[in-house]
Each structure stands twice: as structure tokens, then as C-alpha cells.
Simulated assay, not measured.
Amino acid sequence: MSRVWNFSAGPAALPQAVLERAQREMLDWNGSGASVMEQSHRGKRFIEMAAQAEADLRELMAISADYAVLFLQGGATQHFAQIPMNLAGENDGADYIISGHWSAKAVSEAAPYVRVNVAASNETDDYLKLPARSDWRLDPRAAYVHYTPNETIHGVEFQDIPEVGAVPLVADMSSNILSEPLDVSRFGLIYAGAQKNIGPSGLVVMIIRRDLLQRATRPMARIFRYAEQAASDSMLNTPNTWGWYVAGLTFQWLKDQGGLVAMAQRNRSKAEQLYRAIDGSGGYYRNPIEPSARSRMNVRFTLHDDALDGVFLKESEAAGLLALKGHKALGGMRASLYNAVPPEAVQALTAFMEDFAQRHG
């Protein structure tokens, strides 16, 4: 069996070293004679692993003691609803910045639980650029401001952290967490589905400022309350033990790679190489996103003739380039360049693109 170059948007590529270690430890984890999935989450071995995973993440992201780190379930979509349940009272409003599919979905899921103010949107621009900062209409009384720094489907990314004053900034970082250094202190809450830059699907990592855990909101089941999860070290119920374990391996792998400074340099170089190939193709390939808003993680492109799309996908898969088909809502192609996608994968892709253009020009 040979490994392919995996450009899937999610669930996405995992570091090969992480997969190999998980494979080695599958039947006998940590000298226990059983897999991590067969262990009690209340047991000493698992609790030590969970603590180490949190410590490694705190080190990677320079997370201070002012923040709790939670390992939750439900995917980011569940937390679209759970965040307003935890951060807003029944009569409160919250500001939302719409920059693509996922931020728009966050609005629709939050609407039953908070009075949503769409403070800015790029929908009229077909999500091809970011909402102009001068057009944002923020409410200083809002319970929080929510935005999506990187839009996986539309391929746009904020290049800086927006300034929102004293209102807590909430970010869905599912597709760009751990891709570069981050000033966590600028945020009230960061959350991320694991299946792009952290580990397998089914896990959500959340970083929440501790004072926000004390907000008086509304009656809800304990399982939905972040303060309860923090008080229980994310073990109010049985957690996703496998996802937590693989996330911990990924954090160790990131440290071995040189941390987030090294990952930022590598990710920037990968994206620049692919955008150069697109922009330098003489129009054979096109990326529609305004250059200042282009995503490093998710690169969209189309061929000059969409009749060639099927041929491109068939030949690229035969060449060992997996999951390049664009999202069904947009068509075309999409290459996701998360942390685990090595530079060699991008080199193989750009070489294939050049060869394809020469053969099918």
C-alpha cells in the first residue's frame, strides 16, 4: 500500500508520524496491554495523558492561566448554538461577522438563543473578499463578537485579528488553529473542530477566558454548560478518548516540528507556491479571491474550461492527489493545505497542474 497526497478539507490529513505511533500503540498503549479506546477515562494513565495534551497545547499557543482549555464533543456546529447559550442572557444581543458559509451557518444556529446583529457581511460580494472593516457596525453592548478567521469552503482568511474593543471576541478557528502563532489574549473564546489541524473528527478544542465561565445566562442542562465542563476537566461525561489521545500526539508532533513559528513559515510557503502556479498559468487556472483575503489553508481554483474538471479530477487521483474536488456549492477545485500536508504534496500538485495544462491546453 502506498500513501497518497491528501488535500481533503476535512476530515483531513493527519501527520504520518502521528498515524504510525497510533498504529504502534493500538493494541498496547502505554504498557497497559490494551488500546487507549479501551481504557477508563477516570484511570491514572488517561488522566496523565489528558493533562499532558493540555500542557502541550498551552505551550504551543502560549495560553495563560486566565483561560480554561476544554476538550469537548459535538463538532463546531453544535457550539454555534451552545456558545450563545453560555455567553448571552435571554435578552442579550451578539454581533456576527459573515465572511462565508460557516460564519453564515453560525448565525442561523445562534438565532434561537441570542438576538443576532449581523455587523458586517460580504455576501453581496459572493464571499470573494472580506467585509471592509470600515463597514462593520459593532454594538458596544453586545455579549460578544463572533467571526470565522478562515472560511474553508469559500477560501477567504482574515490576515489579522479584528479590534472589537472591550466586547469578548469569539472565533471559530476550526480550519486555521495551530497554523501560526496567535495572541490568545485578544480573544474571549476560541473553538475548533479537530478534524483539520488537530486530529480525528468528533472532538472540539475550546479555549475560554475564565471570567466568561461565570456569566449568568439561562437554565440549561449541565452537559451544555461550559463552566461545568471546566470544573470537571472536560470529563463531565465520557469524552472522545481516541480523539483526545490523537490530538495529544499531534501537539507533540507540532513541538517536534519547531512549534507554530515553523508551521507558519511552512504553511505560508506552501500556499505561495500553489498561488504562484495558479496566477502564473496564463489564465489556465484561476483563483477568484481578492489577493489580500486569500486563505493559506484552503485554496480554491477553477480551470479555464469547466468541461475539463472531470478529467482533471480523474487524472489527479490516478497520480496520487486525493480530494481536490471543490465544494458542491461552488464547483471547481480546492486544495486544503493544513499542517499535516507536507511541502512535497504541494510540489507534486503544482507539477501535475503544469503537466496537465501542457497536455490538455
Rank of each mutant, 00 (worst) to 15 (best):
F80W: 07
G332Y: 09
I63N: 05
R58Y: 02
T238N: 12
L313Q: 08
A264K: 09
F71V: 06
V116H: 09
N122L: 14
P291M: 02
W136A: 02
A247D: 02
P291H: 04
P84Y: 15
H79F: 15
A231H: 01
R58G: 07
R296N: 15
R222Y: 10
Q257H: 05
V184G: 02
G31C: 02
R21H: 12
P84T: 13
G199K: 01
E20I: 05
N298T: 12
D95P: 00
Q82V: 07
L337T: 07
S40M: 14
I47A: 11
S35A: 13
Q214P: 03
L322H: 14
M173P: 04
D66L: 02
H304F: 11
R294C: 02
N150G: 12
L60S: 08
Q273V: 03
A262R: 11
I98G: 03
A110G: 12
R186I: 02
V36W: 07
W102P: 02
V107Q: 08
A351T: 15
R210A: 01
L321Q: 05
Y245I: 01
F301A: 09
I63V: 07
F352R: 13
N267S: 05
L349E: 04
A50I: 06
Y147N: 04
G280H: 01
A51W: 06
I177D: 02
K328D: 14
G75P: 00
V311T: 14
Y96S: 08
R24K: 11
K44G: 12
A348W: 10
R286W: 05
M61A: 01
L330Y: 06
A329N: 14
A221D: 09
W242Q: 12
P342T: 14
A94S: 05
T124G: 10
D306K: 08
G283Q: 02
R218Q: 11
L212N: 00
W102C: 09
V118M: 09
Q39R: 05
Y96D: 08
D355Q: 14
F46H: 01
E163W: 03
R115K: 15
A335W: 06
L70E: 00
W136S: 00
A51P: 06
R215C: 03
K255E: 12
A34R: 15
L321F: 08
L189M: 07
Q159W: 06
A132I: 06
M37K: 10
N298V: 06
N240P: 00
V184I: 11
A53S: 05
A120Y: 01
L60A: 04
F312I: 11
S316F: 14
W253C: 01
N117W: 12
N240Q: 05
S174L: 10
T241Y: 09
R141M: 07
A62N: 15
L254G: 03
N122V: 14
D56L: 03
F352Q: 11
G320M: 10
V261F: 10
F301R: 03
F80D: 04
Q347G: 12
F7V: 08
P219N: 01
Q257A: 01
D56F: 00
A216D: 13
R42F: 15
W253R: 04
A357R: 12
